[in-house]
Design a protein around this nucleic acid. Structure first.
Lengths: 206, 206, 206, 206
DNA sequence: CATGAATGAGCCTTCATTCAT
DNA sequence: CATGAATGAAGGCTCATTCAT
């Protein structure tokens, strides 16, 4: 519930927006380094170099902060991928671009994904998990589904259930990412990327 | 930290073993239902129907309990998969068995995986993550690697880096599982399983 | 909301009951001495000589503690007054007993009333105030009303609205008490008591 | 604590005075509506429509603000009562005027008394309570005492201790008011007023 | 073996207050 | 004069852990 003193829709100053971004950034770092469970407001504030009450000043509560963290993580990644995909012409190339962009972004933002994996576990109830799914996974799957359907319409791709194939592709990407987050040295990221692009190319083409 | 009074290797009585198993079982249920964050010793003890100090009595601490939970989750799943794989003759069939068994077990033990996903996020530090990787992922990848190498030796499989292919296969399985844990209705598990078996069959055969 | 772990109706051990009483007692002392606003759990715990988490262990929260404090304050006072009233035979004597008992109890339990006055102000919302009224005032007024009606029925008392007269009597008692709580030396309690008994005797008799 | 830079008696500009009055007014409203405990500077500032630091600017601290609130509440009420009393000629009429004015003012300013009751509880220490007594109650009792003594001197009133009778009268008024603040519907204010005027008339006349 | 009771560290949050702009 | 931003102290509460019984 929002305080009655500070109504929902008030405009934020430039300074405040900057602080919020800074805090979100440091929250991600802290979560990635120490784990969500250890990422208390005190620790995060320590990372920023401010008093922990400053966080409470800028965010309605820890929930809002974490929510912003999730948004930031998803937004950044999705924008990057969308950019690569848009630059490709054929459906095949767009699918390849989607996978390659996913891995390219991963490689440059390991911290983000370490945080993400930690956050995955924080949606305890079935309800919360489903809500997160709607925010995080559905957009990705829909994006992929669009690419796949277009490819089927143009005759580039064979017949398959787009929804399932999309889930499979996203799953493969995330599953590899997961292992890589747990131990970067155990996974050869470029090789996995290459393997998956080749495989899904083979698996989808007509 | 282990107590100095009770040396590491001390044998546990039958009763003790039973209690530990019971507690671990209920811990899994609690984590799956409410999320790791809500799974306090009090809640778990409540689920078992005992005082929370009983847990402290049987386990060195919460860390040991969670550690046992992880072991239990991995052991069950791995044994099941190993069973299916062993019943297959050719490398191709063993690979297919591995994937199919993974999905079959999933479908029957959603609770286990819900708990697992929650626990993933509890390995805050890089160190803890690596340790979990060694326990959880490496055995799976090694198992797969063995299947793949044997297939290459027998000429059934084409040339590829077994380690990477293993990571990719396991990743695809886990990634789909993850989405399914977040929202069972969003994922058609059997279709995903079929898609993946077909795909990896295609991707590995020579 | 009650925790799911400790269901509402569980029985309390003798020891726990004793601790609760002790804590309530010290809470009253602390509130009387320092004011409700300063009566933090820490301060109260300090007064008892225990860690503040002990209070949280025995009470669901500060609200429950304060609620128990109120109950204790009202119960003690009401029982005492009821005892005196019951020992009187005529309506006139019972009314006199009610007033005299009120002042007698006051004189011996200044702390209780100091706490009570502080608590009066803690029911911020209209809703909370009304709820407190139902618990605290209504029983007193009803008790008085009963005495007055009986006196009217027996012909001892003249005609008046019993409800209003009850409110007036209780008001006079509480109003004097209030001034006495604020400064004991400013009020001559026995004289006020005598004045009020005489006055209400005169005001009610037929 | 007063700043050393701004000496006590410094004159305030007209604008400053206006702001202070406005803030005090809104503070009363806020306290009456939400309770003193919820009346943070932020909430009060919200009610006024200014930043909370403005309050800090115009008042030495929250204590000074509350102190001004009390003064405002008492001043208004006392002036009103004094006005009515002055218009009466005999001691009996003045006493009746005092009581009737008290109830008349009450009826029109419920908010003020709701705030007052809340504030009563904020004088935690014995010291603070006595100080409040000196400001709030003593003037009222002295006023009443004056009326009573004059009546005794003129032979209108019988012999009694004026101080005690004054405390009793004021007590009766405040006690009824208290119940009415807790639940307006539980109390018939005009009837109580009539009852009290009649009663004290009877109780004082010679 | 099991338990009820107690503990202290740590968490999130609120709030009066300060200060540069 | 007014404000937005920041602060640190304090508050209530949760929880893993310890220990006498």
């Amino acid at each position: 519930m929002r305080s009655k003193v500070e109504p929902e829709g008030r405009k934020r100053t430039f300074t405040e927006e900057a602080r919020r971004r800074q805090i979100v950034e440091c929250a991600i770092t802290t979560i990635a380094k120490e784990g969500l469970a250890q990422a208390s407001l005190a620790r995060i504030a320590g990372e920023v170099g401010i008093a922990k009450s400053v966080i409470s000043y800028h965010f309605a509560g820890k929930d809002e902060l974490i929510s912003e963290v999730i948004n930031a993580l998803l937004r950044e990644s999705n924008q990057f991928i969308k950019g690569w995909v848009e630059r490709a012409d054929t459906a095949q190339d767009r699918l390849r671009a989607y996978i390659e962009a996913s891995f390219a972004f991963m490689a440059e933002h390991r911290e983000n994904f370490a945080a993400m994996v930690d956050i995955w576990g924080s949606f305890g109830t079935v309800e919360a998990k489903r809500a997160f799914n709607a925010t995080a996974y559905d957009p990705c799957r829909r994006h992929l589904e669009g690419i796949l359907k277009a490819g089927q319409d143009s005759g580039e791709f064979r017949a398959f259930t787009p929804r399932t194939m999309a889930a499979t592709i996203q799953g493969a990407i995330d599953g590899v990412m997961l292992q890589w987050v747990f131990d970067a040295q155990a996974i050869d990221l470029p090789e996995c990327a290459a393997e998956l692009t080749a495989m899904f190319d083979l698996a989808t083409r007509s």
